Simulated assay, not measured.
Amino acid sequence: MTQQKVLVTGTAGFIGFHLARLLLAEGFQVRGYDGMTDYYDVALKQHRHSILLENPNFSATEGMLEDQAKFDAFADEFQPDVIVHLAAQAGVRYSLENPRAYLDSNVIGTFNVMEAARRLKVKHLLMASTSSVYGSNDEMPFVETEKADAQLTIYAATKKANESMGHSYAHLWNLPTTMFRFFTVYGPWGRPDLALYKFVDAILENRPIDIYNHGDMYRDFTYVDDLVRAIRLLIDTVPERPANRNDVPEWDSLSAAAPFRIVNIGNSDKVRLLDFVEAIEVSLGKKAKRNYMEMQKGDVPATWANADLLHKLTGYRPQTDFRDGIERFVTWYRDYTKK
């Protein structure tokens, strides 16, 4: 059997690293593409890549997605069967400071990935979206079939644009495309700008932690190993254009006009932020100095995924308890930072 070739963008990033490691463990040939931007510590990204490079079935190219000529040459040389596009300018709060970075990376960069997928006629294009696209929706848990037209940040807007762009390419070029919406991913090798990393770092250094909306916030925390397992299973779940719209069951987000589907990947468990903080304190054996603050602009009080579609498609549900996930993160963090 021919070794399946998967191109993954963002392999030096948090989720891309974990996905590439899983795919390599299962015998895939993986080629990574990453911009190595300095949005956070590049040394952490380099460390992730160095681990992946220990596997002979992995190689990587550094480059920006906006550089279409470079990305095209990279993709053409590899000739992937599947593309998983995870690279993006991440972070809801940073999008208030530098919105242009999100347009460059998330819109222009994603367009370049889609163009390569179209030209190379890949079997399946999978692209990351976010729970943030649900915006001001307040009916929870969030379901893929509900409208999501009221994004609250430029980050969320660029991700919703990706979903619309993906649908149009799936329709025009019969390009099987799956978009997945992530819900507050956490775990070892996580980004330093994510709440768990920031909280652990601050508590150990006796600095106060900022708790927005006075702690009255809820998140659907998804452990990274669960997330990438779901992506791995979705790679094999290739959407097909329905013969007619009546062929699409009500529970499925499959488009009636294209081989295109949107899938939530979340734990389906709404966790109160203060309970999350208390679990960190228990894991560290140390109390946090809490700085209660107002809700930050563009933020939402709660996210909560309905993951029934993922389960129906793959038979899988993320289910790591947040307390266990925090323990694993803290173990990794102490080892990595020597704190």
Rank of each mutant, 00 (worst) to 15 (best):
R245D: 00
E250A: 11
A305I: 14
I209S: 06
A243D: 02
D275R: 00
A288H: 10
P239R: 12
L273Y: 12
W251D: 13
K270A: 08
E281S: 10
L309D: 10
P249C: 09
Y218E: 07
R241L: 04
D299Q: 12
R245T: 00
L204S: 05
Q296M: 08
E250K: 13
R328S: 12
S268C: 05
F322H: 08
L274K: 08
S283E: 14
L310T: 09
A279H: 09
N246M: 10
K312L: 04
R241S: 09
L234C: 03
D236P: 05
D275M: 07
D247Q: 15
F276V: 01
T237Y: 06
N264I: 14
G315E: 05
G266W: 06
L233M: 12
W332P: 04
G315L: 05
A279V: 00
V277W: 05
L274R: 06
V282S: 13
V228M: 03
L227R: 09
E240C: 11
L313V: 06
Y223I: 04
T303D: 00
D220P: 09
G285N: 08
L313M: 08
V238P: 09
E294P: 08
G298A: 08
L313R: 10
I326V: 13
W304L: 02
K312S: 06
A307M: 02
E327T: 11
V271H: 04
V248I: 03
A256Y: 11
G285M: 06
R219L: 04
L274F: 10
F322R: 00
V224I: 13
P301T: 11
R290T: 02
G315K: 07
D252F: 03
E205I: 10
R219K: 11
V238K: 15
K270M: 11
P249Q: 10
W304F: 13
L254V: 01
K312C: 02
E327K: 13
A230F: 05
V330G: 11
Y316F: 15
Y218N: 04
A243Q: 14
K312G: 01
K312D: 03
Y212R: 14
V277N: 10
N213D: 05
I211R: 13
G315R: 08
L234A: 03
V277M: 09
I235P: 01
Q296K: 15
R323L: 03
L204K: 12
I203N: 08
K287Y: 02
R229S: 07
P249E: 06
P259S: 09
V271F: 05
I265K: 02
N264G: 07
V238I: 15
D216W: 08
